[in-house]
């Protein structure tokens, strides 16, 4: 995947990603209309499908609201790269199939507006604007499997089918 970068700082919390005043719905399109609004009020208008968010440490801290990765995904963001993720956001992103990569070096060096190319399987991030390449922390195989199946629900369905198939 390839896209344009929107850059954010440290500790972007889930209230900034999707403020609670919009949590009276769980409709992804409605949530996407307000994505990142309290971090950058114009973001929902500026963002285009395929764009990539790059942020510094502790991205997605705060609430467990899955509405946060849902809003990002529904806005067409293809991947989030950060120095580190808050743990519930990390889990939620994997569970709903929003690609994320943990890579402090990329997060620090990639700038707003850069064009980058991401090879998710290899965990490689190429900054096409500067010509630099970064390597992300690889996912453990178990999490990779959830992502390969398209999220946790598909994974659970597959597991249940496997159990039934083996007669247990």
């Amino acid at each position: 995947m390839e896209g344009r970068v929107w850059k954010f700082g440290n500790d972007i919390d889930t209230d900034a990603i999707i403020p609670a005043r919009y949590l009276n719905t769980s409709d992804p399109r409605e949530l996407a209309r307000h994505v990142m609004e309290d971090a950058d009020p114009e973001f929902p208008q500026k963002v285009a499908p395929g764009d990539i968010i790059v942020a510094l440490k502790n991205f997605g801290c705060g609430s467990s609201r899955e509405h946060a990765p849902i809003a990002i995904k529904a806005a067409g963001i293809s991947c989030v790269i950060a120095s580190s993720f808050a743990r519930i956001f990390y889990r939620n992103a994997i569970n709903i199939g929003l690609p994320i990569l943990e890579c402090p070096e990329a997060a620090e060096n990639i700038r707003e507006g850069d064009k980058i190319r991401i090879d998710l399987k290899q965990g490689l991030i190429h900054d096409l604007t500067t010509g630099r390449t970064f390597s992300a922390v690889p996912f453990p195989p178990f999490m990779q499997e959830i992502m390969d199946k398209g999220g946790l629900i598909n994974y659970v369905q597959w597991r249940l089918r496997k159990q039934q198939g083996s007669g247990t």
């Binding site: 705060g62 467990s64 609201r65 899955e66 990765p69 939620n92 569970n95 709903i96 629900i153």
Partner: peptide, 26 residues
């Protein structure tokens, strides 16, 4: 619990942690 403050119950000596909605569903 699908609420980040589920960690409250550690006060009772439980391992309690917040998760998202899909984790709750599974």
């Amino acid at each position: 619990g699908a609420d980040s403050h589920t960690c409250t119950y550690g006060a009772l000596g439980a391992f309690a942690t917040g998760v998202g909605s899909t984790d709750m569903a599974a």
